[in-house]
Amino acid sequence: MGNGSTQLAQAALYALSSDSPQPLSVVCAVPYYSGYPDLANLMRWYKWEGDANTFDKDTPFVEIVTSPNNPDGFFRVPVVKPRPDGHVVYDMAYYWPQYTAITHQADHDIMLFTFSKATGHGGSRIGWAVVKDKETALKMAKFIDVTTLGVSREAQVRASKILGAISDVYEGPEALPESDRFFEYFRRVLNERMDKLRESLRVNEFFSLPEYPIKHCLFTKGLTRISPGFAFLKCEDGKVKDACGLLRSHNIIGRGGPMFGMNDSFVRVSLLSREDTFNCLLERLSAIGAGGDVAVQINPS
């Protein structure tokens, strides 16, 4: 258990670097989660080395594989060639059936999960790691114990109760019709929002979105479309040098491509806001290139 998957990622890097005579190189294929560089540069035992696709140093390393990926939602596999001094940490924060098809039973050496992406309760700061190697797990537990004296019992009880309530709607006397169950409802909302966003983008033709595959899901026992919680937009207008700045000029707050190791033509916006905020996002996106403007400020995600 950890205080969110961010602390567990730190704990994993600490555990894997404890026997290394030099700073452990930390890499991740672009586009990578924007929080990894700061996380990897926080301690002297490891350091951020950027894009895993271009990593060629003969030094101990950890490759972080975010699958499904943040910001673009695609499945990921390691890209650095395996070797004895290399490790892989799987960040599986979004491996939940509302975001993607559950295509296999995950069985990696170190896997990180988080309560916040499963249910939206980020403030509870609950994450968990599944770790095969006992010594690595003990070192991770020590890191969490020393840095924060463990994990809040109140938060653990709250997370357990909420996960139990979600489980109850799938089986037993409190089971609900399939359309009313938690993950199905969540996925339906994300699918609808992605469809509305694509329609809005077709109006202005400034931005494009990746095309997501449909895969068979072991959870739903049917075909499921990938529906990430973010939209990783690419600006297709060559005259625009800063996609994030363009959105800000229309009172839309996003995260620019350089934060994810990409160029300024990319920007990430959240699809997990409240309904009125999402509708406001669509309105402002449609106004780009149409001469429209709106005055109300969108809260940052």
Rank of each mutant, 00 (worst) to 15 (best):
G2A: 03
G2M: 00
Q7T: 03
A9P: 05
A12S: 06
A12E: 00
Y14M: 01
S20Q: 12
S20W: 00
S25M: 11
A29E: 15
P31R: 12
P37G: 08
L39D: 06
D51A: 08
F55A: 06
V65L: 07
G73C: 03
P78V: 04
P84C: 09
G86I: 09
G86W: 02
H87V: 01
Y90E: 03
Y90A: 06
Q98N: 09
T103H: 08
Q105E: 14
I110P: 11
T114W: 03
S116Y: 06
K117Y: 07
A118Y: 01
G120M: 06
G123D: 14
I126L: 11
W128Q: 00
W128M: 03
D133G: 01
E135Q: 11
A137D: 04
F143E: 04
I144T: 15
I144K: 02
L149H: 15
V151D: 10
V157C: 01
G164I: 05
G172Y: 12
P173C: 05
A175L: 05
P177L: 01
F183I: 00
F186L: 01
F186S: 06
R193E: 05
R198K: 11
L201Y: 07
L201V: 04
V203D: 06
V203W: 04
E211I: 09
Y212L: 07
P213W: 07
H216F: 12
C217Y: 01
G229Y: 02
F230P: 05
D237H: 14
G238P: 07
K239H: 12
K239M: 11
L246P: 13
R248G: 09
S249I: 08
S249F: 14
P258L: 13
F260T: 13
N263L: 07
V267H: 08
S270P: 00
L271C: 02
L271Y: 03
E275G: 00
G289L: 06
D293S: 15
V294I: 10
I298R: 11
